[in-house]
């Protein structure tokens, strides 16, 4: 489903070139649950951004479901993110002025669903992650674990085939972290492809497959 072909990424810092990724080759099959592990600065977040079509690679090709993402326009990549990829971030990245419902509805707004349908789906999703009682709460009125579950509901609301989770438990305590991981495993069982980035071995071991990254290179 995902294929990284000799991917390289270089950041330009003034005159200097800082290589982040060099010659990364990775294939992820549909329905896989892959954990990418590495220390901070190893380039795992950049790899995640490339997988999520948020950032183009400097070199190499990235195929999403057979389509060469590197040749897509900005709008086409945006639509890929919207319809086929769900993001779960370490810092939740919820919009603080919007309620849980409105946050979850947001991807559907950009997908162009009518309001009524958005509400029905968002409500179902929030009920699904166990927040049916807190639809109108603002993120600041929710605990970290609850916020992350809102973020998961948001990632799922457009029925993505791929969920990218970047340190989903990084900002949570052990117990709520486990709850969130539990939920992610469940998504995997329902057929969604999961790619998870973490530096926590306990978290990584829940995955089917473990990929280590060090200094911008993969060690399989």
């Amino acid at each position: 489903m995902l294929q990284l072909d000799h991917i390289g990424k270089v950041y330009q810092v003034g005159e200097l070139e800082a290589p982040i990724l060099s010659d990364v080759n990775l294939t992820i099959l549909r329905g896989e649950y892959v954990a990418i592990m590495g220390a901070s600065g190893s380039g795992k977040s950049t790899l995640m951004n490339i997988l999520g079509c948020l950032e183009p690679p400097s070199r190499g090709r990235y195929y999403f479901d057979g389509r060469d993402v590197t040749s897509l326009s900005d709008n086409e990549r945006t639509d890929l993110r919207n319809f086929r990829i769900g993001f779960v971030f370490q810092q939740f990245n919820l919009l603080s002025r919007l309620s849980a419902m409105e946050n979850v509805m947001l991807p559907m707004v950009y997908a162009g669903y009518p309001r009524r349908e958005r509400q029905v789906c968002a409500r179902r999703m929030l009920e699904r992650v166990g927040l049916g009682e807190r639809l109108d709460h603002l993120p600041s009125q929710l605990s970290g674990g609850q916020q992350q579950r809102v973020a998961i509901a948001r990632a799922l609301v457009n029925q993505p085939e791929l969920v990218l989770a970047d340190e989903p438990t990084g900002a949570l305590d052990t117990r709520t972290g486990q709850e969130v991981m539990e939920l992610i495993s469940q998504l995997h069982q329902e057929g969604i492809t999961i790619v998870l980035v973490t530096h926590d071995a306990a978290v990584a071991h829940r995955a089917q497959r473990l990929v280590r990254i060090e200094d911008g290179q993969l060690e399989c």
Binding site: G52, L54, D74, N75, T78, D79, R81, N82, F83, F87, N93, L94, L95, L106, P107, Y110, A111, R154, A155, N158
Partner: peptide
Amino acid sequence: GIRRAIGARS
């Protein structure tokens, strides 16, 4: 950034 990530076009 958040809006762009979850599917807002420019």
